[in-house]
Design a protein around this nucleic acid. Structure first.
Lengths: 191, 191
DNA sequence: GTCTATATGGCGATAGAC
DNA sequence: GTCTATCGCCATATAGAC
């Protein structure tokens, strides 16, 4: 692996953990066993390195979902699989997820546009299409958003929810959450 | 207003904007027109100041919701009002909301317990009670969580959702979101 | 491409006068 | 309770040798 790629991979993990201003170039250099100057050879400054790292971590998420859209599942099965995969991606790639959370927190309009169009657009369209199939007379954007929002909340807020009354250990099992979210949405369509 | 309170109020705004390591004591001192040393007279160190600021911003949110629980609304009306108020609090007190987001991002187990028990417990119990009333045979914790998750997602992800296909201007109107979330949940109960 | 050495400045925190 | 002055450290970034 090239030094540049090694730097990027470490930067993803460390920026996700510590945030932009929380990670120093010294710490990053230590983590990749290079000098600070060597890093500055590959990237013009800290900000450019950060943006490159974000882009790099976003680059390989699509194929997981494309399998679902290309399958011969029924619409309901596709919804369940999509939500299940979304949960799995969020749980398995915590660094990607935390970087996303940080981006949302900053909410920089320019970067939001970049994220929406460069990363999420195609998957979101496919999800909206599925929602239209399942509930033709409802607002597809609202429903797609609701599906993602429900799944995301259970993952992001799990550390907090564990400390609130009524929590059960099954609430952290991906398949259980996926089934709950899917059922909630499908029930709502029937009414 | 005392210097201590002035410092705390400014700290809430600035920590919400810049995060813990993004805000320096010098910047905070400049904002409140005091010297750095004066701040250290009121707080032992930066971390203690941060925790005090978080606690301070959490202290006055309960009464908004207690009005609802004490009203003579029907259960369905209470659900709608709760979600509507949740949205309003998040939109009107951006600093509180951003501090919350940062806390969730850090996900420090000890602080999650503090937040859950010291801040959210009583409101969450009342919401679960309402859910039990509306859908007695379902998991109240899951439903309460779903309600909060749906509302939160629409607010937090609005800057991103605006850039995705199918977005309409009505999607940012609080009453519209509240109605959508309430309807989704109530429909799901009926099925 | 990577190093050592260093410039320059901001950081958290403290000492001591008023 | 607030100030000025300062300590010691670590930050980003650069210069120049190899």
């Amino acid at each position: 692996m090239s030094s540049k790629e090694k730097i990027l991979r470490a930067a993803i993990v460390l920026f996700a953990q510590k945030g932009y201003s929380g990670l120093s170039m010294r710490q990053l250099a230590l983590a990749v066993d290079l000098s600070v100057a060597a890093i500055y050879h590959h990237f013009p400054d800290k900000n450019a390195l950060y943006l490159d790292a974000v882009r790099f971590s976003f680059s390989d998420k699509e194929q997981v979902f494309d399998q679902i859209w290309n399958s011969d599942f029924t619409a309901k099965e596709k919804l369940h699989s999509f939500i299940r995969s979304l949960i799995d991606v969020m749980l398995n790639d915590r660094d990607f997820h935390r970087l996303m959370q940080r981006e949302i927190l900053e909410a920089d309009p320019e970067r939001m546009q970049l994220l929406a169009q460069g990363v999420f657009n195609s998957q979101f369209c496919l999800l909206m299409q599925l929602m239209t199939e399942l509930a033709p007379e409802q607002d597809a954007h609202l429903l797609a958003t609701s599906a993602i929002g429900l799944a995301k909340y259970y993952i992001e807020y799990q550390p907090l929810l564990k400390n609130l009354p009524g929590w059960k250990s099954e609430h952290e099992i991906p398949e259980f959450i996926a089934t709950h979210v899917t059922t909630l949405l499908l029930n709502s369509f029937q009414a």
